[in-house]
Amino acid sequence: MELLVIVGVFFLLCAVFFIRTVSKKKAVDKAVDVDKDDSYAFEAIGALFTAAERSFYGVLTQSLKDNYVLLGKVRVADIIKPQGNLNRSEWQTAFNQISRKHIDFVICDKDNLSILCAIELNDSSHNKADRAQRDAFLSRALSSANIPFVEFTAKRSYVIRDIQNELHQFLAQQSSQTPSADTKICPCCSSQLVERVSKRGKNQGNTFWGCSAYPKCRYVEES
């Protein structure tokens, strides 16, 4: 009698295991079928930029020299990441804060595509509380990664010289320019050193020399 009970329990466990295995396989097959299902219809959004963004993109293009690359609609998580000293939970929380956010424009060095500055074009929607909070977060996040964050107000027309003047201090770190006699060279990677201003910490407001190849090279020295 005891043997029959043991055998019965064994077959019951086998049946449960079989049912669960079949159920999982059906779920996987269903997920695969969704990928193969052509009943889902999509349509193109159209232009990558809004009319205001397209207008400003043209102005930015005219404002930049040939030694820069202008990118648009860049995911924030593609230009910054949580610091490596965070534990797994903290890292994931920090990543979630940036994973679904985008920057309107990013200016890069043409030679190595290092990021020189991030640009946001603010229309009237940025006056709303949630948008203002988002912009403030982006400013803090990019500043912590030493990436300049420049905000422009959307207008009907722009003056190219004004745009150039606003961006000059950030684009002066262009590493592909021909060094002059008084150019400072990074002792680590031989790129040019550019003068920058500390935006946080006890040295906030003080100037220092930083490598133009940042973030690939993080060499700094006192100004």
Results as ranks from 00 to 15, higher is better:
Tyr214Thr: 04
Leu171Val: 08
Asp33Pro: 00
Pro82Ser: 02
Asn112Tyr: 12
Ile80Trp: 05
Cys117Gly: 06
Asp123Ile: 00
Tyr158Lys: 11
Lys184His: 11
Ala52Glu: 12
Ala154Gly: 01
Ala132Pro: 00
Glu90Gly: 00
Val76Phe: 10
Pro82Phe: 03
Cys188Phe: 04
Ala145Trp: 12
Asp38Met: 09
Leu138Phe: 09
Glu120Gly: 01
Pro82Glu: 03
Thr183Pro: 01
Val22Thr: 11
Val5Ser: 09
Cys186Trp: 07
Arg75Pro: 00
Val197Tyr: 04
Asp29His: 04
Ser55Ala: 12
Ser114Met: 07
Ile79Ser: 06
Lys216Gln: 09
Arg196Ala: 08
His168Met: 06
Ala145Tyr: 04
Ser63Gln: 02
Gln62Cys: 12
Arg100Lys: 15
Lys25Asn: 11
Lys202Glu: 09
Asn96Glu: 13
Val32Phe: 06
Val16Met: 07
Gly201Tyr: 12
Phe49Ile: 00
Cys108Leu: 15
Ser125Leu: 05
Asp33Leu: 07
Gly58Thr: 02
Arg156Ile: 05
Val7Asn: 07
Glu166Val: 09
Cys189Leu: 10
Val22Leu: 14
Lys128Arg: 14
Ile19Val: 14
Ala77Leu: 12
Ser223Ala: 12
Lys36Gln: 10
Asp104Leu: 02
His168Tyr: 08
Ile115Asn: 12
Ala31Met: 12
Ser114Asp: 14
Gly210Asn: 06
Leu113Cys: 03
Lys101Asn: 10
Thr178Ile: 11
